[in-house]
Design a protein around this nucleic acid. Structure first.
Lengths: 240, 240
DNA sequence: TTGTCAATAATGTATAGACATAATTGACCG
DNA sequence: CGGTCAATTATGTCTATACATTATTGACAA
């Protein structure tokens, strides 16, 4: 047994929770008690509890103690692939074809657009992600020009604007919505499928603090793409 | 400024990384340096770095220092909703209708099934999740009876087996795959849609250690369901 | 030049204690 | 009976220190 003590404590409690031995809402031993149980310092216990709290397995309340959280939702870690890299790893050639580029003011009827740009201008970029000449996804992206003025001067013909943004623009928060939709006629044309074909729809907004940066909607060809989410010890070790 | 110091350090570095100020692969200041910068103890710096390492934003190597991780993929936290609760929160009535129940040995041609149960028996449960009489998803679940023998004796007619498993069976790891597919005829019949309609396909496997527990495949009616993933300060505060 | 081995520099884990903060409890007083 | 305030108890943060672990560096010898 070589694993650190705080990790052992963490696991013991995690196991007890996941196994139902500790019911949601149950109070778990106070730090001093665990301290005696494991014959260690309070910091060590605290480290274990902090880790559990940070993944939402327990709630800690001053004066009251720590409690098993009501597992309203389970959270897992979702890996969002970098398309270009992912495709190249499969040994295919990645490409991006720009279909449309437009600068305009946000549509006042579209809450999305005003929320993103306020009264500033928007850059609309529409394009197709391609793997070995086969279209994989269509992407419609809005970029707030007040947040990213530099982008207006660029000619983003063959490179994905997402990749450029990722490298050049600071962001602190992001939200992704995932759904399944039927391809509309336009999308279907770009993806070379029939209208109505199932697409994985991914919509992502990113912010820097309160300021909106970009809003992107991607339609992945149904058969071409999966997303993976994990919980547990499976580590992010794809090195070499 | 009321936020803890270790949190401030964490954010400063996180921001520097996300903004590209610290490029992937870049070495960041060693702990003693940060210690001086922030005029604090090493433990405080270490706590900040540990947090960053645990979400995969940096790699820490002894003797060498800490480095910004190559962001092969971005990871976000995906909330996996508890269907029953989610539906009830919308003010709808939740129901589960069992369609089929069968105990059998794993199919040797299906790698999934043997991986799950080895040579033990499997319980197959097929059913429909219903919100206010409207079918929302069909679910086909395999449960390893060697891992969960108790379940064979239960009559799971009106309750979701997922909910029961969640409450009674310990698990430590899970993996979820998300895709968009067209409904096959059988699925379409259950969901009261036409064959070929887009469905959000969710496949989840759970384990306790190395032992497989259950494998579930859910087809959500396309218009009815979204998944949400977040990165950043948006906290899990759905209390009350 | 090459191999070995010890010094070294960095993180990893842990201790013991201090003070801060927050919420509950209970005593006291109107 | 009800309200206020202080004591208590638990977590939250932080310091300062110690020793463990591990990979690199560099010196020295073959």
């Amino acid at each position: 047994m070589s694993l650190p003590l705080h990790e052992r404590i963490r696991r013991d409690i995690e196991t007890a929770i996941l196994s139902g031995e500790l019911q949601p809402g149950a109070r778990l031993p106070v730090e001093h008690e665990l301290m005696h149980q494991y014959a260690c310092a309070r910091m060590t216990v605290s480290k274990a509890l902090s880790a559990l709290a940070s993944v939402g397995l327990i709630d800690r309340r001053k004066r009251a103690g720590s409690f098993v959280a009501r597992p309203k939702v389970h959270s897992m870690v979702l890996d969002i692939p970098d398309l270009e890299q992912e495709i190249q790893q499969r040994g295919q050639m990645y490409g991006y074809r720009l279909v449309r580029r437009q600068v305009r003011l946000p549509d006042h009827n579209a809450a999305d657009e005003t929320a993103l740009a306020g009264k500033g201008k928007l850059l609309l970029l529409k394009g197709v992600h391609i793997a070995d000449d086969v279209p994989l996804a269509v992407e419609a992206r809005l970029v707030s020009l007040s947040a990213v003025p530099e982008i207006e001067a660029l000619t983003l013909e063959g490179t994905s604007p997402g990749a450029w943004l990722l490298k050049h623009v600071p962001w602190t928060e992001a939200e992704t919505r995932i759904a399944a939709v039927a391809a509309d006629q336009d999308t279907a044309n770009h993806l070379l499928v029939e209208a109505g074909a199932p697409c994985l729809f991914v919509e992502r907004r990113t912010w820097r603090g309160d300021e909106g940066i970009t809003l992107v909607r991607q339609h992945f060809i149904g058969s071409g793409y999966d997303l993976i989410a994990r919980f547990g010890s499976s580590r992010r070790d794809t090195d070499s």
